[in-house]
């Protein structure tokens, strides 16, 4: 398009140029016009597609990453449709991305429903917040990997790193939401105060505790003080 024949010094014979048929020139002009329309369109379309691709890629890769729950076990056996793992260890993340880990003496997973694992001899560490964590020991329970919950039954002991000891008979823990609740009697001691009740629920990572039905609290400030007075470092500190 830019190339133009100039009058002076060109070898072609000016007379022949005048005879070139008008139609050929019109066709060339048409082709040039369509070409520049195409260029104009591409100038818009190409960067747009590049932008869309750039955006789509990170979103796609974020969505496709699996939730971080990995299960490791010493050895596994397969008997009558059930996968039996001996002292499995598994870890995961709560909704605030605080890590939780759990080990058990034995885990039994029904092949039909592989997200639910029956556990025996449980020892779990659950985050209360960034600074404190709770260790949960229980005779047996069921862990639901997809729902991120743990139902425990029979002599459960929960000890938190800020000095609370809870004895429970059953408890339902939702690690994802950081909540805990039980319909059976509870016995809790914490620096000189001893709380008993028939039901209990805990939320926002154990910061809010609600006890109901026959709540009995015995506070013995002296006991708490002597523990500190004697300078004995509290387990949590």
């Amino acid at each position: 398009m830019l190339a133009r024949t100039t009058e002076t010094g060109s070898e072609s014979d000016p007379a022949a140029e005048r005879q070139e048929p008008l139609a050929a020139r019109a066709a060339a002009f048409g082709r040039a016009q369509r070409h520049s329309q195409r260029v104009r369109a591409l100038k818009f379309v190409l960067p747009l597609t590049a932008g869309i691709i750039a955006l789509a890629f990170p979103v796609y890769s974020y969505l496709v990453t699996p939730p971080a729950v990995e299960v490791k076990a010493d050895d596994t056996a397969f008997s009558d449709g059930k996968l039996v793992m001996s002292n499995p260890k598994l870890s995961g993340q709560t909704s605030e991305n605080l890590p939780y880990s759990m080990s058990a003496a034995r885990a039994v997973q029904d092949v039909a429903n592989e997200s639910v694992i029956g556990l025996e001899g449980i020892d779990a560490t659950l985050p209360v917040d960034a600074a404190t964590s709770a260790t949960v020991k229980a005779a047996n329970g069921t862990y639901d990997r997809t729902a991120n919950t743990l139902q425990l039954s029979k002599d459960i002991l929960v000890t938190t790193s800020d000095g609370m000891v809870m004895k429970l008979q059953s408890v339902f823990l939702d690690m994802g939401k950081g909540t805990m609740k039980t319909g059976d009697p509870v016995d809790i001691t914490r620096e000189g105060s001893h709380i008993r009740s028939d039901t209990m629920s805990a939320s926002n990572g154990g910061k809010t505790l609600v006890f109901e039905k026959r709540v009995r609290v015995d506070i013995d400030p002296a006991a708490a003080k002597t523990k500190e007075g004697s300078g004995e470092a509290n387990a949590a500190q």
Binding site: T208, V217, D218
Partner: peptide, 22 residues
Amino acid sequence: DQPIQIESDKLEVQQEQNLAIF
């Protein structure tokens, strides 16, 4: 500094606000 016994139907402990509501 004396022991206290408290009984109630319900107790809510707000650990962050150092609060207990019977």
